[in-house]
Computed example of a mutant assay.
Amino acid sequence: MYDVVLLVEQELTEEDAKQVVALHEDLPDPVKYHVVIPCHNAEAGVEASLAALGTADLYGAGIADQRNDLAAAQRAIDDEAKGCSGRSVERLQALGQQAEGGISHERAIDALTETVRKVDGREVIILTRPHVVAEFFHVDWAAQARRHLGVPVLHLLEHDKERPAKRR
Rank of each mutant, 00 (worst) to 15 (best):
E11R: 11
E11F: 03
L12R: 02
E14L: 09
D16G: 06
Q19K: 15
V20A: 08
V21W: 02
A22N: 13
L27N: 04
D29H: 07
K32P: 02
V35W: 00
P38E: 06
E43R: 04
A44I: 11
A48T: 10
S49Q: 13
L50K: 00
A51R: 12
A52L: 09
L53R: 06
L53Q: 08
G54P: 00
T55Q: 14
A56N: 07
L58S: 09
G62N: 10
I63P: 00
I63W: 00
Q66M: 12
D69V: 05
A71N: 06
A72V: 09
A72G: 09
A72R: 11
A73G: 03
A73I: 04
A76E: 14
A76D: 14
E80W: 08
E80L: 15
R87P: 01
R87Q: 13
R87A: 12
V89T: 08
V89Q: 07
E90G: 09
E90K: 14
Q93L: 10
A94Q: 14
A94R: 12
L95Q: 12
A99R: 07
A99W: 04
G101S: 09
S104M: 07
S104N: 06
E106F: 08
R107D: 15
R107K: 15
I109D: 10
E114C: 09
E114K: 14
D120L: 08
E123G: 02
I125G: 01
T128I: 03
V132T: 15
V133L: 15
A134L: 14
F136W: 14
F136E: 12
F136C: 13
V139Y: 07
